[in-house]
Design a binder for these strands. Sequence first.
DNA 1: CTGAAAGCGCTTACAG
DNA 2: CTGAAAGCGCTTACAG
Lengths: 379, 379
Amino acid sequence: MMPILHLDFGKRLPKLSIILWYKHPGECIGALDRTRECGEQGGMNKQKLIGQEPVSLATVAAQAGVSVATVSRIVNGETRRASAETVERVQKIVAALGYRPNHVGRTLRRRESRVVAMLSPNLDNPAMAAIAASVETALRSAGYVMILCDTHDRADLQDEYLHVMRSQVVQGYIVVNPVRSEALSASVSRGDPIVFVGRRNPDGGGAFVGIDNRRAGRDAADHLWARGIEEFGVIYPTQGSSATRDRVGGFITRLEELGLSDEAVRQAEAPGLSHLEVGYAAAQRLVNGHSWPQGLFCPSDLMAYGAYRLALETKVRIPEDCRVVGVDDNKLNAWIAPWLTSVHIPYADFGAKVLDQLQSLWAGEYPSEQLLPHTLIVR
Amino acid sequence: MMPILHLDFGKRLPKLSIILWYKHPGECIGALDRTRECGEQGGMNKQKLIGQEPVSLATVAAQAGVSVATVSRIVNGETRRASAETVERVQKIVAALGYRPNHVGRTLRRRESRVVAMLSPNLDNPAMAAIAASVETALRSAGYVMILCDTHDRADLQDEYLHVMRSQVVQGYIVVNPVRSEALSASVSRGDPIVFVGRRNPDGGGAFVGIDNRRAGRDAADHLWARGIEEFGVIYPTQGSSATRDRVGGFITRLEELGLSDEAVRQAEAPGLSHLEVGYAAAQRLVNGHSWPQGLFCPSDLMAYGAYRLALETKVRIPEDCRVVGVDDNKLNAWIAPWLTSVHIPYADFGAKVLDQLQSLWAGEYPSEQLLPHTLIVR
DNA sequence: CTGAAAGCGCTTACAG
DNA sequence: CTGAAAGCGCTTACAG
């Protein structure tokens, strides 16, 4: 499709050599603002496709017969400071050459980018993927792009990413389910714009987007209680995050308030990072030697799935023998887990809130917490 | 924790003003290589945290009493070209100041970055999230970072992102399930390094990572056939991608080869982007006025989930009344969808293959296709 | 209304 | 072994 131009200069052309490619006089269809060494490619001789080299401000300026300063202003919408003819001519050439500002040059000069880093543990978790999707959409609508970093819930990876992102001159950080780490504390002390999502800042303080996890646990307790259930169970991961602890804590506290004794609320935990497996293992411990409780609270849907598998294997019927309440309300529940009541977390709304928080931080406002409303979805 | 220094200069300091902060003589604990205007912050007076400003090469060089060129070389591991003492002194100061190279400056100068753009439709889809997670991990291990762009399967968004990514001077593109678009064709003609995943380049050609979709469909057919099934059904989205078409095509072709007549293989389609809803709607059309087929092939697990919901609602038992085969083998199947046989796609291995492909492209090799093995997981 | 010039942080031939 | 200098692409006071 594209015509191929054979170029074979012995040396680099001097700076600012500009090659323009015309279809007809007056209709420029491509430009190189410099030639560069072209390595051998697939055994062919040195060659270059027209237009392969991005067009720079200098090319546009040369074409238009104005200075780069003028082009820069016009490209940035500062059209009042140039004559109407100049503006039009430049805009025409910008369009013809398909000029797009190089954000790297701009970032270096302005000392600010339109890039935000998002650190998330295991994207594999549908809840994390939902947050990522929502944040990405919100950022795009505000003209930002997102570098996604999967920390695998590891402090060392979180630190590495924080360092690398700083090198990339990102404009802000979104840390989903942070873990305590050196670089994170340093970043916070430095006053970097950073929004915590899901779990709070392990060192306390900072901007936060999430739900009222204690309240979510209480709501789960109330729901089961209202169903007349008398024997309760709750399972959780040994290495619980603040979010998990709050959910479980709220659940148990509420049952105590309702007058339940300790033995009416059985608890079990299991180690591990995969909530699926933790749910399975913890459920095993919970029912070890006992029957299943009438009502089981799992601080995440994935844990509920883990428990469900054990129920299947042991021929316990869910929800007939044991009502299960999860948290997250995975989108798939409505389709394939009709046995699971779950606390819906409005992940789809997280993106907008996270953006709000970032913009507040950029405006120099004091960090705040944004708690979004959750809803119990009864199935 | 961090000490606060009140700075109130009437004007900017001249370039290269350097403020170093010592705890004891000889032990530098922070540095500003320039002061900048500090806006009012929360009503407090102008102030700055020590170390807030990133340390530049110039700062390190000044501290070490050498040129930036020398520091640059050492930081980049070119230690043979400096005396051992110099290297040691510089490295010590780099460590003390916590210097990290600014990748923006480096990118501008080298005209290459360590950033790769990944364009994906709906991250909401667990299969897409799995690919993103896998690619992210592979890129990180090779020292790259990933900008994630959610195109929502829309050509206009895909184009916008391709343009913005070019502005960001990304080093390569990974396009999952591409759609035909202007900027994509332009990017391909330009010779940009771009790897297609899942679906092929709509214009043909290019580097590709995926599975043999026709074969996957054939395997599904063979599985159901071997179970003695005689009435088959298949559902698919009206706006099918090449991947979907190939899966369905393989399925039907194989059944024809086995001697099945057209009426023994019922087909139904439904419009939409959400495979969950497409699956539900298409299943409705499939069984409209008929009984369910004995075996149903769905070109994605999500479509199978959609069909499952209809089965639940209409009291059809899966798999007793109808065996369902999906594609993707969602991780959750093993836990909560034990009724679903599915073609497992090794998404976890995609990342490494995608990286291979990118590196080939960077090395100037001719683009190729990488087909990964799939497996039928029978449940 | 427009442009020359400095500079963002870095790299890299080139000269010594 | 080391440094001065040019330059990546852009922006922005400043001067005219």
